[in-house]
Design a protein around this nucleic acid. Structure first.
Lengths: 215, 215
DNA sequence: TAGATTGTTAATCGATTAACAATC
DNA sequence: TAGATTGTTAATCGATTAACAATC
């Protein structure tokens, strides 16, 4: 019932809670306290309680949160209590891996079709898909009212693909290409660039030349 | 010379600056202002100036930042002004895609070897690698003083692999498995779980039942 | 009941932004 | 010079944490 302004940074943590709770459910635990959940996720118990309290009172004093109930509620909040259809654009090495990854369907994200503009790849079988021509992308997205897409094309082609997707009605893009996409404010983009993560880590692994001492 | 306490959130933005500046360099621009860089990245100019000023005075009033010089400096700050060797554990669909991705080597991250514990996969050619037995992992990491690793094994095996890597001396792990890893504080972990990003987006794409109006 | 843990408030902490003198 | 943009300070904004009454 509450559902006040939910900061985006809180929304970003909810899937993490969901993932951890799924594991806890598989372990057969019926209740979990914010303390223990926090330990598993390296998040403070206070933060977990505060985040969850934005959406209602799920906990029970003295016991913690009922795992099944909280899982169901989080799925509902995140909108993953149903199946989502996605299109995948790009059938190279990365696109192939994405198409073959079973984790999407397991968690409710089904790839409805895979597209590429390379004649060499069109028609090729990819897991349970046959790669389609990018020419069919617009019609397919419209026909199936697809709202989610994944881009796994080279950086040079990513913006063009994004423009096509947006025009066809896509509202969320998971972008694997190492470029910042420009889209209208009504469209959400999330980026995955593994090199960015590696560079983040090397900062800490590189002994800074001047700053030898810690203090 | 300055190099005061650098917040981690600033460190996380530096690779983004680096990536954008590389593109700007390819376009042939010699100078870029914080205003224009900010527009490309959807980051405020003030934030860019503040972030960069933590590391010194790179800019020139009236002109902006010299692209080449800033690029070189950022590479040095992040520790990517040299090549890093990595090991990749897991040679399934995802591991194969990672092994074949040319973007790592292009940006200075070289995969030195690929490991798997499935006899079916050991010995198989993967891009320029031949998959090795996981039994050799520890010795290899030590022999080559490897500090970075990527985990692309099933969730159920990820923690065990992480433990092995840490014992062998790895200091940074890029984890593709959808689990939270537990490692000593001296080891850094970055996670990539595409489903988490999708769930983040579906929150906004799902019309909340009760919150029909915007206000 | 005694013990444990929630939900929430207030305090703290940290990050972002606005503004502007300095200066290329 | 006039115009543009930096580096930096102070103000604002927002997020995290500590603490505790409420209560299962």
């Amino acid at each position: 019932m509450p559902e006040r302004h939910v900061p985006d940074i809180v929304v970003a943590r909810l899937p993490l809670y969901l993932r951890a709770l799924s594991a806890i459910q598989r372990e057969g635990l019926a209740f979990i306290s914010s303390k223990e959940l926090g330990e598993r996720l390296s998040i403070s118990p206070a933060q977990i309680r505060k985040d969850l309290s934005l959406f209602g009172d799920f906990g029970r004093q003295g016991k913690g949160y009922e795992v099944n109930a909280l899982l169901a509620r989080l799925r509902r909040i995140l909108g993953v209590d149903r199946e989502w259809l996605m299109v995948l654009v790009g059938a190279g090495h990365l696109g192939s891996a994405v198409a073959n990854y079973t984790g999407f369907a397991q968690r409710g994200f089904r790839i409805a079709a895979v597209f590429d503009n390379d004649p060499q790849r069109i028609g090729v079988r990819l897991g349970e898909h046959v790669v389609r021509s990018a020419d069919e992308l617009d019609a397919f997205v419209r026909a199936h009212a697809i709202r989610l897409a994944m881009i796994a094309v080279p950086a040079s082609a990513a913006q063009t693909v994004a423009d096509q997707l947006v025009r066809a009605g896509v509202r969320g893009i998971l972008n694997y290409a190492p470029v910042t996409l420009t889209v209208p404010p009504s469209v959400r983009v999330e980026n995955i660039d593994p090199v960015l993560h590696l560079q983040h880590m090397t900062y800490y692994l590189s002994a800074e030349p001047e700053a030898a001492g810690t203090s």
